[in-house]
Structure formats: structure tokens, C-alpha cells
Amino acid sequence: MAAKSKVVIYTTPTCPYCNMAKHYFKDNKVEYEEKNVAADRALAEEMIHKSGQMGVPVMDIDGKIIVGFDQAEIKKALNLK
């Protein structure tokens, strides 16, 4: 079920694609945990380690790492119709 997925999104406050991704989660009633990598360098390192890259947003959906607001990939990872 989509609502039960563990979703973490790594963001920066000024990033429009991060905002779009969060709106997408809200519209689809997906709960998520937001990690602001601009405010905490340890979180930035965690994101870079997980994704092997430095662009935001990064989403960790049940262990699947998605880089960028890739709606098709997010939909697939969440089993959304």
C-alpha cells in the first residue's frame, strides 16, 4: 500500500523540484520525512553516500533511491495508479 511506504526526501529550501515532489506526495496522501541538507551537513553526506551524487531532490522510497523529481519512477516505487 502506498501510504505505508517509508519515504524520505532530501531537500534544500530553495529547490523548486523538491517543492514539486513534496506537493506530489501531499496530493497522493503519501507520508514522508523531509531531510533538509542545506541545514545539516551530516544529512548532506548521508544523501551523497546513498545516491552517489550531489543533486536534490533525492528520494528514498523503501530503500529505492530516486534522484530528481521523476514522477514516473516515484509512481512505480509507491505502486500508485
Binding site: 534544500t12 529547490c15 523548486p16 523538491c18 541538507v37 542545506a38 548532506a44 551524487q53 543533486g55 534522484v67
Partner: peptide, 17 residues
Amino acid sequence: NNKGVTYCATCDAPLFA
């Protein structure tokens, strides 16, 4: 690309503190 090369300063600048 995305490994130090970026096209979106607004998005990624904070990662270069």
C-alpha cells in the same frame, strides 16, 4: 553530472558549503 556538475544553483548550491 550531479557529481559536482550542476545546472541548478538554486537547488544545489547549499551542498557546496
